[in-house]
Amino acid sequence: MTEFPVFDGHNDLLLHLWLSGDRAGDGFFDGRAGHLDLPRARAGGFAGGFFASWIPNPEDLPEPENLAAAVSYPGLEPNRAARISLQMMGILRRMERARPDALQVCTSAADIEAARSRGAIAAIMHLEGCEGIGPDLDELHLFHAAGLRSLGPVWARETIFAHGVPFRFGVTPDIGPGLTDAGRRLVRECGALGILVDLSHLNEAGFWDVARISDRPLVATHSNVHALCPMTRNLTDRQLDAIAESKGLVGLNFATSFLRADGRKDAETSLDVPIAHLAYLLDKLGEDGVALGSDFDGAQIPSAIGSVAGLPALIDAMRKAGFGDPLIRRICWDNWLGLIGRVIG
């Protein structure tokens, strides 16, 4: 187990529990295939993170090994999306009710610290893509009452709020128009409610619209550096400068196709590659602006990490690269806690 607690910016555990019909989350507590469960979280020092609700595509659409061409996805039916979003949020709440000693849904930085003090995994409820929210935002208020404190207006699909970037290698995220009128209302309402707006899947025009509208720190919970890996999902230097100016944060995504200079999905990717992204982010954002956003259970990650139990390997790589223990602790825990306190409460 690592000596540093880890708070992580993104995982897709709830999707897999939902797909398998595990509405009680027994697989999380008892052990499951994939990247994240309680036994391995304990082993790896994982103490909390953003637990995403993401609606799968109606059909299994393949993703090529090297994304030289854009991959587009159809939109979702809103009522179905709202229903599935609520079901995934319900799974997280059932898990908390079944094992309050092991997991707590948190709505503030103070809640996260309290959960850690008693040994429970701290879970921030996140919505990845807002297909289940209508233009009047009624569902947003319902989700907020259920505990939602973070959302991304889009995934790779277009919504009534914004345009997500397609998964494409070798081009910039400057693809398509920005926020719609409904999207601007969504961002303003999130600010009023204390809901973090995640920029990770927004295209560049949408990013700049949020930057103009919001007075909150700009946050990308699970993205990397476009200059090192020219994937549409990654952030340009200009975007990183804006995040730094807002005193925002970027969580390092472990997906190898967002890390590698060739954009390939390759589990044998050396940990030197994510370390290079961390070093670049630190140079652009400073020591308070960089954290982790693994994408556990949502991406192919380096085999040297393998699962949540492998987080100590990444920490060892940071140390070998010359990151001192105070900086490693910031990246692993302190920076997310500070950002959550400033944006959510």
Results as ranks from 00 to 15, higher is better:
243 I>A: 07
273 V>P: 01
19 L>D: 14
96 E>Q: 15
186 L>Q: 11
30 D>H: 15
243 I>G: 07
132 G>C: 02
313 A>M: 02
190 C>A: 12
19 L>P: 08
194 G>S: 13
213 I>R: 04
262 D>V: 10
235 L>S: 13
256 T>S: 05
305 I>S: 06
257 S>Y: 04
134 G>N: 09
266 D>S: 12
285 L>V: 08
345 G>L: 09
65 E>G: 13
104 Q>H: 14
88 M>A: 11
121 I>M: 09
292 L>Y: 03
339 L>Q: 15
126 H>Q: 13
170 G>L: 05
161 F>V: 05
55 I>E: 14
36 L>K: 00
132 G>D: 06
57 N>K: 10
51 F>Y: 13
91 I>S: 03
118 R>G: 04
141 H>Q: 09
217 P>L: 04
30 D>P: 00
4 F>M: 04
141 H>R: 15
253 N>P: 01
169 F>G: 02
66 N>Q: 15
64 P>C: 11
335 N>Y: 03
51 F>W: 13
268 E>T: 15
224 N>G: 07
96 E>K: 09
64 P>S: 10
256 T>I: 04
207 F>K: 10
8 D>R: 03
198 D>K: 09
79 N>M: 14
56 P>G: 05
337 L>M: 11
13 L>Y: 01
22 D>S: 08
20 S>C: 08
78 P>G: 06
2 T>G: 10
92 L>W: 06
